[in-house]
Nucleic acid binder design. Sequence first.
DNA 1: ATCTTATATCGCAAATATACGATAAAGCAT
DNA 2: ATGCTTTATCGTATATTTGCGATATAAGAT
Lengths: 110, 110
Amino acid sequence: MAQNKKEEFSKKENELADFANAISHPARVAILKEIAKRETCICGEIVEVLPLAQSTVSQHLKELLKAELIKGKVDGTSSCYCINYETFERFEKTFNKFFTKTNSQKPNCC
Amino acid sequence: MAQNKKEEFSKKENELADFANAISHPARVAILKEIAKRETCICGEIVEVLPLAQSTVSQHLKELLKAELIKGKVDGTSSCYCINYETFERFEKTFNKFFTKTNSQKPNCC
DNA sequence: ATCTTATATCGCAAATATACGATAAAGCAT
DNA sequence: ATGCTTTATCGTATATTTGCGATATAAGAT
């Protein structure tokens, strides 16, 4: 990169990018799917299901936590995760605001 | 990475990750916003608005094209881009299917 | 107290992404 | 034909991400 230009963009643009970034790896999509499927929390179960080392899964979970797509809680020896639906709902709105087609009939070259 | 494990995940998981990946940089969010705002096509206008070099913007546009978030057409000396709403609609559905909260009342640790 | 189990963190190697300047390509104007 | 404008591509430097094994941490079992 030479320099990181991310600060030169707006907060909203960065927030949406960060949200998308958390979903931008198939391992993290798979983790989110697995957590959503079981609804109740997990962790070692995710490692069993994914084709990745435990340390790698842990790293992906950390990223999902940081982006607040999941919530986590320690429960004895094991860690317990679940989807943070508030975040998903928030970005669903942002997403639609940014990109839903308007009804205007301006000419369109493509 | 040492090795790229992306092929070990499902096609659906990779498709959603690729879609999110295209949005995962604030420059690309800004580009999408600008194109959506003007509705009709552009290009040099995007370069004017963004705090990035022309070659960098071109690279980001190429990525957005590859992920099919935008469509492009050459028009004389200039290139013309617009949002590919089909792709957005397609992924809105996928997105909801994966992550919308079910109504079941399973216990939830978080 | 020691061993096992579960998860997180560290350190490192390799891959990928980001950014830019320089240059190429291709149409338009003179 | 030559020069200007617009966009794409190439080469390169640097930053970030991905992935793993090894190790740390901390709770539960013996």
